[in-house]
């Protein structure tokens, strides 16, 4: 099964250093947003705001059908406490408007600090709490957890402004520099997610044998699920299945082929 780490990025200035670093190529997809990819990473240039981020997740999901997807929202953020240039992964995301809260789950060791991220509708200039402020995370997160298991969904932000450094001074080239300065942290986080997606993908892989069965006989959806499960068992239990054997040759339909597989697995107890 294929797997991909999908980066959702709001601004062109945030996306460009990533496109260059990962050598991503624009995909000719029929989507309302620009999507770039290489064999392991997909990047969507979402535009600003919660709904844009959620929409981008949907577009990438459509592009990567049948794939195990991890999701990483990358961008700049204000912060009530952290220094400018500090990278952090969100361990709690709060939507300021709805006060809905999400708790991203870490099953890998983060390479940077972790902290609360508040998604706001208007640029935050008061920095009233010692938390991060962005405009996308809650939209991104709520959409992405509908597409993947929560351990594979994260948000990484780099502090661009804080009570001592006004947001008004955040320029395009400053954003470019901030992202470039944290490429190794981003790389590590992507690698951790990649490992996890690879693990899930291997777990769910269906093999050549399944393909042979599907080519030869017709199976209903339920039968396909049963077949996959039985073939998986034969694989794990190292039971040989030979579709060219006489037993299978005499099977007229999927149902009878499925019966033969089932019988073969059940003989396991007698061996």
């Amino acid at each position: 099964m294929n797997h991909s780490v999908n980066l959702i990025v709001a601004l062109k200035a945030e996306a460009q250093p990533l496109i260059e670093f990962f050598e991503l190529k624009a995909l000719p997809v029929d989507e309302t947003i620009s999507i770039f990819a290489n064999h392991e990473v997909t990047l969507a240039l979402a535009g600003m705001g919660k709904s844009a981020a959620a929409h981008a997740v949907q577009c990438v999901k459509n592009t990567n059908q049948g794939c195990v997807n991890a999701w990483l929202n990358i961008g700049i953020a204000g912060h009530g406490e952290f220094d400018v240039g500090q990278g952090f992964l969100a361990n709690r995301i709060v939507d300021q408007t709805t006060m809905k809260t999400w708790y991203p789950q870490f099953v890998f060791q983060p390479v940077c600090r972790t902290g609360t991220l508040m998604t706001v509708d208007k640029v935050e200039t008061d920095y009233s709490d010692p938390v991060g402020y962005d405009m996308e995370a809650s939209g991104f997160y709520s959409a992405a957890v509908n597409c993947s298991t929560i351990e594979l969904v994260h948000t990484y932000k780099i502090v661009s402004d804080n009570p001592r450094n006004s947001v008004a001074k955040v320029t395009r080239s400053k954003i470019d520099n901030l992202i470039k300065s944290k490429l190794s942290e981003i790389r590590c986080t992507i690698d951790s997610l990649k490992k996890l997606t690879a693990e899930v993908a291997t777990r769910n892989s269906s093999d050549e044998l399944l393909h042979q069965f599907l080519q030869r006989w017709r199976f209903s959806v339920t039968q396909q699920i049963q077949l996959k499960s039985f073939l998986c068992k034969t694989n794990v239990l190292k039971i040989d299945i030979d579709v060219e054997s006489n037993e299978f040759m005499s099977c007229r339909n999927g149902k009878s082929a499925l019966k033969v597989v089932e019988r073969t697995v059940e003989t396991h107890w007698r061996n």
Partner: peptide, 17 residues
């Protein structure tokens, strides 16, 4: 329950840490 009872979680992945 906000953390523990969520639908889309992977027990096997979480068992790692």
């Amino acid at each position: 329950t906000e953390i523990f009872n969520l639908k889309s979680q992977d027990f096997r992945l979480q068992k790692k840490q």
